[in-house]
Design a binder for these strands. Structure first.
Lengths: 182, 182
DNA sequence: ACGGACATGTAATCGGTTACATGATTAC
DNA sequence: GTAATCATGTAACCGATTACATGTCCGT
């Protein structure tokens, strides 16, 4: 039920329409909680039905501007402070690592090298992004920067780990394939 | 569709029943790709229908032992090597960080401290787990150790980041609340 | 006048979760 | 005999994805 809270959190910054919110999702929340158009409109309707947001004003082209209600703000704060964050998140990347034994050593090392390269690329992208976002002192920018810093640290850790794992696999291979057998 | 590949990967290690596979999920894959009982049995039926696994033998109590077919092995290898890993994974933990502006400074720092503590706990748990799993030289153990190492690095990075973010928030607070105002 | 952006909605499908339901075998 | 474990299955529901569908306003 986090899409609900993502929407409440964005609306806590100021009133917005579904269309506005979608654009915000595409830029600032895309890497943390992606959402589709269908989903956003449907959830806004549900939030309004539940009284957590209200339709503050209606504009041209059927535009509906939503504003968070007191109940909505309370729900948001409750979620942030009281609801324990999800323990595990599924990772198909790590699942593949479990099954690397199904490949030959070169392919397995290739997969890990690819992970390292991907992490390095993401790191560079985030470095660019952080330059662009550095201006702005609204709440979302301030805390968005904390999230970006996590992205930087995560991509660094992943690159280093993948490089380590690649060496580790090579080491295992060398140990099980003594020089005489080469 | 990764549950399907998780099952193929486990069956590539040797034939097993749905019941067996479930126990494996509960121990070794619990932190990477959790699966429920309903899900496993249903997916095994689908895999058999698709010809990716076969019922190798039937035992007492309606037990069905599944074995991966050649087509299944091919599908598994294709998935590991050719299908690009998922880019983003949703994180309600980071989503909360975005909305920390809705709390007062103490609460926000509390959330981050809590994250740091949680990461430290997970790190300790993994250190225990790695001791237990260190014996065993089958494929799953070898590559499972790579995954565990990632868990260790991830939990360390998260603890350090959360501690850094907590200080960062304090710094912001001090900057916006000059001594004269205290 | 027309194209692009603005703006909202519905329906089908899929993967995952929870709960329900049932029964056989084995160890004590 | 009986409790624990082994063993499989179904059904309802929920959140997310994809595709379809429709219409309006604004700038040039």
């Amino acid at each position: 039920m986090s899409l609900r809270h993502a929407l409440l959190g964005l609306l806590a910054q100021g009133p917005a329409s579904g269309y506005d919110l979608l654009k915000i999702f595409e830029i600032s929340l895309a890497n943390v909680w992606p959402a589709t158009q269908s989903q956003v409109y449907a959830e806004l309707t549900r939030l309004a039905d539940a009284g957590l947001v209200t339709v503050a004003s209606e504009g041209p082209r059927g535009r509906k501007e939503y504003a968070v209600s007191d109940a909505g703000l309370a729900e948001l704060r409750h979620w942030v402070t009281e609801v324990p964050p999800t323990r595990v998140s599924r990772s198909d990347m790590l699942l593949r690592v479990f099954f690397l034994g199904q490949l030959d050593t070169d392919q397995a090392r290739g997969y890990l090298r690819h992970l390292a390269e991907g992490a390095a690329e993401r790191h560079e992208q985030l470095k660019q992004l952080i330059k662009v976002v550095t201006e702005g002192d609204d709440d979302l920018s301030v805390h968005g920067r904390l999230v970006l810093e996590w992205g930087l640290r995560l991509s660094t850790a992943q690159r280093e780990w993948a490089e380590w794992a690649e060496r580790e696999i090579q080491r295992d291979f060398d140990r099980n394939t003594p020089p005489a057998a080469q």
